[in-house]
Design a protein around this nucleic acid. Structure first.
Lengths: 189, 189
DNA sequence: CCCATTGGAAACCGATCAGTTTACGGAGAA
DNA sequence: TTCTCCGTAAACTGATCGGTTTCCAATGGG
């Protein structure tokens, strides 16, 4: 019956890495990660090249789920403006979670500082995907400058994430009017 | 004649803390800080309670200079809209520096995660000062919702900082139109 | 039964962490 | 000169870092 009761060592390590590095920062120790996952260091280093590799893999595994959770379905027939707003509504909903500290992909890039770190590259790709979505919708919606609008939107997205991460304010009722102002300015109605 | 040729140990420590924690993150070691400052650990621990205390003092000392570098003078007789744009022009100019990695106050909050850390508190105050300036100018300029506008502006400010920190894009020509769109939406002309 | 593979526990590596202490050298006062 | 005081370098604490290695118990196939 319990065909999936026991996640593999690999899965437990990926989960622990995602949870602990998000909560405590990327400087969390390998011992703590392994202990949380219930996996020996020996096994960990057989499954992953290094701690950085584990972190990158952990971000990678969640990347597609993260993006698809934010994006609307491809065929919802809603106008581009609403599809863009949908992303920010989802992000704001996530920000309501009790232990939310901002987008993990942004945070890991800031903490690592090294853009060539494999985990930074994964994070960079996630942001690129999101920007590409904004740009495509901006074009579809007839924005006056789709590329500018996409860059403005990802700017607000990351700003909201960073502000949420430092618990700066509640952001209630802040994001939607901001995005709306940018969409209006781009003549995207 | 060289009345100020030699900064005090305290000053050199504050400078080293500001430089190295910005470049390498808050996890830089005390040994490295003292070595860079040319001060023994013993002296450091006589001047400061702890590493965290040194970091907080280093942020504190630069705080007023940072804010005044961004803000226009109180009596420049420019309209509020221009005074707000001035802040973002200054920030964009700073972002052009070769080793710019985003606002140090935002970064330190994200890295520390603990909002009760003395250094986080200093950073928080800096952001509050900036927000207060935006709000005052928004009121002065007759914005439809000064508080909302101020929160939108600090959101963009931190977003730009975070994006610059991860070297996401050049941001050339990105900030000004974004801020302008928000000012327009608030009927602040 | 025996043996070979697996993987966990834990010791171990050299390095570094924050923080304390010791020992020494140099400057000023007597 | 001799004594005192100050700050330095450096050793040291015990803990942790990323990563490796050793040892042993459990497992499964012959």
């Amino acid at each position: 019956m319990t065909t999936e009761a026991m996640p593999s060592s690999r899965e437990r390590l990926l989960e622990a890495a995602a949870t602990l590095t998000y909560r405590d920062g990327v400087n969390i120790g390998v011992d703590a990660l392994c202990k949380a996952a219930g996996v020996s260091k020996r096994s960990m280093y057989k499954l992953f090249e290094s701690k950085g590799d584990l972190l990158a893999a952990s971000l990678e595994e969640r990347a597609s789920a993260y993006v698809t959770a934010l994006l609307p379905t491809a065929d919802d027939n809603h106008p581009p403006r609403e599809r863009i707003l949908h992303v920010f509504e989802q992000a704001e909903a996530q920000a309501g979670a009790p232990d939310f500290q901002g987008c993990r992909y942004l945070v890991v890039q800031i903490e690592l500082k090294d853009p060539s770190h494999p985990a930074s590259r994964v994070a960079h790709r996630v942001k690129e995907n999101l920007t590409a979505f904004f740009r495509a919708e901006a074009e579809q919606g007839g924005a006056s400058d789709p590329d500018l609008l996409a860059r403005q939107l990802i700017l607000v997205f990351d700003g909201a994430s960073a502000r949420a991460g430092i618990k700066a304010d509640t952001q209630a009722g802040l994001i939607a009017p901001t995005v709306a102002a940018l969409l209006d300015a781009a003549d995207m109605h």
